[in-house]
Design a protein around this nucleic acid. Structure first.
Lengths: 247, 247
DNA sequence: CGGGCAGTTGACGTGCGTCAATTAGCGTGG
DNA sequence: CCACGCTAATTGACGCACGTCAACTGCCCG
C-alpha cells in the first residue's frame, strides 16, 4: 500500500494542493526548504492515522482522500469534530499529545513533516505561520458553525446542512458547471454521518429517505448523491442566505 | 459610562492581562508600539458590542468582565459559540465582516486596536502573530470539545460540563486554595446557559435543581454556586480523566 | 450459494421541548 | 416599611422528535 514516492509531486510546485495548503504563500526558495524535509505517507480506508493521546511527532497536509477527526467518551459515545479534505492540515505545532483520533475514511495520501524541523522552519518563515493562522481561523469558524448545527437544528436540517457542506467543498475542489444543481459521492458511511451530526445511524437513514421522497435529493446506490436544486436543499438546512461566504 | 482612561493601565506593563493576552510574548519595545495605538472601550451589561454582519474596524482583548459570542438563525433560534473572559481576543485580522454577535453579559472593559494598524504591526511582529496562532488553536480545541458536549451529552451532563468549564476558568484567573472544592458566581442567566448548551431554559432550570437535590452543587441565591466535590461534578459531566489538560 | 457488512424500515419508549402557572428576587415609589 | 411591578427562575402537565431494539433487505466478495 505504499505509493511510490517519485509519483507524488517530487517538486512542490507541481503539487495539487500547492495553492491551498499550509505552503500556499511560500516563495520558491521556501518551497525548496520544505521539499527537503517533507515525506509522503499513505493510508488505506479504515486505518487510524493518529490515536488520541499518542505522542505526535509529525504534522502534515492531506494531499488526496478524506479523513475524520473524532472524540470518544469512556462509554463509547463518539462525536466527529472535523472532516479533513485535501489541503487540510493535521497536527498542532507547539503541542505534543494528539487530542483526537484521526481516521482515514477513504484511501489517503498525506504530505508530512517531522514536527521539530517544521516548527523551526515556521519560526523562520512568516509565510507559513501566517497561512497556518489563516487556516486555523477558518477551521474555528467552521467549528462554530457546526456548533449551531449540533445545538439547535432538527435531524432533517442537520442532514441537509451536512450535504450542503460536503457538496460545497466538493465543488470548490472540482470547479465545474455551477448553476443550481450538484452531484457528488458521500465519503462517509451512515454511521460516520451520525457521528458528525450527533444523531443515530437509524435517524440518518430515515431522514435521507425522507429527503429522497420529498425530491430534495436523489440517490444512485448508497453513496452517490444528486441535488437537483441547491436552493431547496439550503432552505431545508435553515442556513441564512449568506451560506458559504468566506471573506 | 466611560471609564476614565488614566485609570486603565496607562502602561501595558501594569495591565492585568499582560501575560495571557495577545500581547503576552511582546518585548518592552513592542509593548510601547502597542501602547501608541491602543484605546479602551467600556460596555454595560446587556449591550451588544458587535452586531453580526457589521463591518468590524477594530480588534481587541477583554480586560475585565464577560461577553458571549452567539449565532442566530432567521427564525430566532440562537446558539452561543464562545464565552469571552479576560484576556480573550475578539475579532479576526484579515477579515472584515463580523460573523457573530458579541454581547456583554456583565459590565466589561476592552483594550482595542484599530484593525489596519494592528494588522500592520502583526505582520512586523512575529511575537504577536505567534501568540495569536497559539490562542486560536486553543479556541479551536475548546470549540471541538464543545461539539462533543452539544452532540452527545445528556442535559445533566451538559450542565455539569458547563459548570466545570466556568469553574476551571474562574480558578485560573483567581489562583486560590485548590483542593477538591470550588466557589464562583455564574456570569450567565439560565437562558444564556441554555443557549450555550443547546437546551431550553426550563431544562436548564430543572437540571440545576436536580444537581442541587443530589448534593452535587449548592446554590446561594440564583447565581452563586458552591461545588463541594469537584471530582463528583466531573464524574457527572462524563469528562474523561484528563479534563483540563492543556499541554 | 453463503457469510458479512451497510443500509433500511418498523414498533415502541423516553428525554427533552412546549405551554402555562407560580414563585422568588429586587428596585422604585408612595 | 410595605405595595407594586418587572424580570429571572422554578415547577408541573403533556406531547413529540429522536433514540432504542429488532427484523429485514441489498450488495459485495469469496
Amino acid at each position: 500500500m505504499n505509493v511510490p514516492r517519485h509519483k507524488l509531486a517530487p517538486h512542490c510546485a507541481e503539487c495539487p494542493i500547492r495553492h491551498k495548503a499550509v505552503c500556499a504563500r511560500c516563495e520558491a526558495d521556501e518551497l525548496k526548504r520544505l521539499e527537503e524535509i517533507k515525506y509522503y505517507r499513505s493510508f488505506e480506508a479504515g486505518q487510524t492515522i493518529i490515536w488520541s493521546g499518542d505522542k505526535m511527532d509529525f504534522v502534515g497536509s492531506v494531499v488526496s482522500g478524506v479523513a475524520t477527526l473524532t472524540q470518544t467518551m469512556e462509554d463509547g459515545r463518539t462525536q466527529m469534530v472535523g472532516l479533513l479534505l485535501p489541503s487540510d492540515f493535521v497536527g498542532r505545532p507547539g503541542r505534543n499529545g494528539a487530542p483526537y483520533d484521526v481516521v482515514a475514511t477513504t484511501d489517503i495520501v498525506m504530505c508530512c513533516f517531522r514536527k521539530t524541523p517544521f516548527e523551526t522552519m515556521m519560526n523562520e518563515t512568516p509565510h507559513i505561520a501566517h497561512r497556518l493562522l489563516e487556516m486555523t481561523l477558518d477551521e474555528l469558524d467552521a467549528a462554530r458553525e457546526w456548533m449551531l448545527v449540533l445545538g439547535r437544528k432538527t435531524a432533517r436540517e442537520k442532514i441537509a446542512s451536512l450535504l450542503c457542506i460536503i457538496g460545497r467543498r466538493h465543488a470548490s475542489l472540482t470547479p465545474d458547471g455551477p448553476s443550481g444543481s450538484m452531484v457528488f459521492d458521500l465519503p462517509l458511511t451512515r454511521e460516520a454521518m451520525a457521528d458528525y451530526l450527533g444523531l443515530t445511524l437509524e435517524t440518518v437513514s430515515r431522514q435521507m429517505s425522507a429527503l429522497r421522497k420529498d425530491g430534495i435529493i436523489e440517490l444512485k446506490g448508497k453513496r452517490h448523491v444528486i441535488v437537483p436544486d441547491l436552493g431547496r436543499l439550503m432552505d431545508v438546512a435553515g442556513d441564512d442566505s449568506d451560506g458559504g461566504f468566506y471573506g
